[in-house]
Each structure stands twice: as C-alpha cells, then as structure tokens.
C-alpha cells in the first residue's frame, strides 16, 4: 500500500483510512481526518474516463498547448493538408470566445468542435467529455485538442490525452521554458514554431530554448518547424505517424499511456519503473532546423528519420531509452 499520496484509496479500502482503530497513525490528534487525495481528483477521474473512450477507438489524442498566437491552428491546418488521405483527423478547439479556429479547421474538411470557455483560462476533462458528444471517435486516427492559448493554467488539468505537445514560437523568446516551467515540464514534445522568422529574430537561439527545456529535466524531443514554409514539417509528421502507430500497438496490447509528466501524480507514482539512459548527441549542421530524436521507446516506435529534405539540420538526439516509464499499466499503486 502506498501511504505517500493516497493513490490507492478506493471505495473498497477507504474505511481503513477512516477507521482510527485500523490505521491509528493515519489519523492525527484533534479529530482531523487524513485524506491525502489529489485536489483535482474529480478532474483526473473524468480524464481517465475520456482516455478509456479514446483507447476503445484506438484514437491517439494530443493536447496542444502554447501562448495565444504561437501557431497552433496554423500547424493543424498544415498537418491536415499533409496527412490528407493518410490519417483521419478531428479537432477540439478551446477558446474563450468565437468559432474562428474551428471554422478554419472545418474549411479543411475536418470535423472540428469548438469549446467556448467564456472566462475559463483552460480546458478541463469535463469540457472535453462534453465535446466528445459532438465528435465521433469511430474511425479516427488522431484527435487534436487545441487548448486555450495560455502557458499557465492548461498544464494543471489532465484531459485524457496521451501526449502533451507544447509550442514555442520564435517571437516569444527562447527563455520561455525557464519562465513557465510547469508548462514546459509537462511537454512530451516541444515544437519551436515560426522557424521562418529565425533569420529576422536574432534574439531567439533554438539552442538556448533547448537548453532551458533540458534544464527542466525534460528529455523530450524538440523540433523546429515552420507551418508556413514547411521547413521541419516532415519530421513533425514522422513523429505524429510514429505516435499513431504506437497508440494502435498499445491498444492492441491492452495498454494505455498518460503524458510523461503528470502534475503531482507521476512523481508519487514513480515507484521507479524507470530504466533511463539518456544520451545527447547534439549535431550542429548549422541552419534553421533543430531536431531531437525521440527514442522514447514506446514499442512499435517506427520513428522514421526524414532528414535530408530540407537541407541541413541541427540535430539533438535525446535518446530517452525509457523501457518502462512510457507505459501506464494501470498498476494499483
């Protein structure tokens, strides 16, 4: 029994925690009741429920997070164009107001549901669950959830996604990971977007952005892309294809996946199934594209390398050979 966080407290054993005779040390003096429950427990349960829906249909679900205006919708438009006829895509859009982003996606012939949050600065699992009544999961390969543009709040709410993708546009500054550590620590993939502007914005050095990202102990891949010119897009699409295949393989094996870094839960649940060997081989070939190759071994990782199409690259391999930590075997704590 994990006594650290209460992760294993269920309706079946809760009486042990509440019964002073059974667990005297769990109840402190003064009539206080020990709870040890995540504050976002209700959200997390709804998120798990969403994830079951997604897995039932073998749909890969990605949570896109970034500042407003860093190019989430533009990236989706380019992705939809590139994967037309290859992958079936749907999108859930989160914004405070307007259907504008959903309209842009629909114009590409893809189902999009807009969640307008009013004043809420983030999506939560309940909002996504409600949206699922408007988005048929049958036959989908990938569902993108475009979160509300905000580098703070969305990081704290699990939606049921399998991966977090965090965008950092070059106009924002390369120190953003250090300024918003909770958000960038939660990223399974960081995309440096608007790479076409790198020449014009000399203040932004992809190396510094990657350094700041690594300083959050994040071994995740980093890709530099421009949805406008298509630079770096092939590598992003390969990552996406590999993730889609990995999701189908996981479902076939009866497994699921939560984003690598969970707020709070992960640290407490990491009873070290981690066998991590991280190698970094920074290759600098000098030009706009910065790669980092995820050998973050989910099985069936056919992450195809597609270099050589956009000229020279700057590579950074972050080989996170994480044998076990990529999976959630739904262990009982």
């Amino acid at each position: 029994m994990c006594n650290t966080c209460g992760c294993n407290v269920t309706d079946a054993n809760r009486h042990l925690l509440d019964d002073p005779a059974a667990q005297a040390h769990e109840t402190s003096a003064g009539g206080a009741v020990v709870v040890l429950q995540r504050l976002l427990d209700a959200n997390d349960r709804e998120a798990a429920h969403n994830r079951e829906h997604f897995d039932e249909h073998a749909v890969l679900v990605l949570n896109l997070m970034s500042s407003p205006g860093s190019g989430k919708t533009r990236l989706l438009e380019a992705t939809i164009d590139a994967l037309r006829g290859e992958a079936r895509i749907a999108v859930i859009e989160g914004d405070l107001e307007t259907e504008n982003d959903a309209d842009r996606i629909r114009a590409k012939g893809v189902v999009a549901h807009q969640i307008t949050t009013g004043t809420a600065c983030h999506l939560d699992a309940h909002m996504v669950h409600d949206a699922l009544h408007h988005v048929a999961l049958e036959g989908l390969d990938v569902l993108f959830i475009e979160n509300v543009g905000n580098l703070v709040c969305p990081a704290s709410f699990d939606l049921g996604q399998h991966r977090n993708v965090t965008l950092l546009s070059v106009t924002e500054g390369d120190d953003k990971p250090a300024k918003y550590p909770v958000m960038f620590r939660a990223a399974d993939l960081m995309l440096i977007t608007k790479a076409d502007l790198l020449g014009a914005i000399e203040e932004f050095a992809p190396e510094r952005a990657i350094r700041a990202f690594r300083d959050l102990a994040n071994p995740g891949p980093v890709l530099t892309v421009s949805a406008k010119t298509g630079v770096g897009l092939a590598t992003w699409l390969d990552w996406l294809r590999a993730e889609i295949r990995a999701q189908k393989a996981r479902v076939a094996a009866g497994e699921t996946l939560r984003p690598k870094v969970q707020p709070e839960g992960a640290a407490l649940h990491a009873h070290d199934h981690e066998h991590t060997h991280l190698h970094e081989h920074p290759h600098t070939h000098g030009d706009g594209v910065t790669h980092s190759h995820p050998h973050s071994h989910t099985h069936a990782h056919g992450h195809a390398h597609s270099h050589g199409h956009e000229g020279e690259h700057r590579h950074e391999h972050a080989d996170g050979h994480a044998a076990g930590d990529d999976h959630d075997h739904a262990h009982g704590g």
Binding site: V35, L40, P181, V182, P263
Partner: peptide, 27 residues
C-alpha cells in the same frame, strides 16, 4: 525553472518533491 542536479549540475533528474497538489487532512 531550473531542475538540474545541485551536486553535479546534470539536467537528467527526477522530481521527487515540489509538484504536489494534495488535500492532506481536514478538521
């Protein structure tokens, strides 16, 4: 904003405390 090892400076660390969001007890 900087989760590197305080001893050797390496970035490959694991957070062991600091991201808790727990209701510990009630009166």
């Amino acid at each position: 904003g900087r989760l590197v090892c305080g001893a050797c400076g390496d970035w490959q660390t694991r957070l062991v405390s600091g991201d808790e969001l727990l209701l510990v007890s009630v009166e």
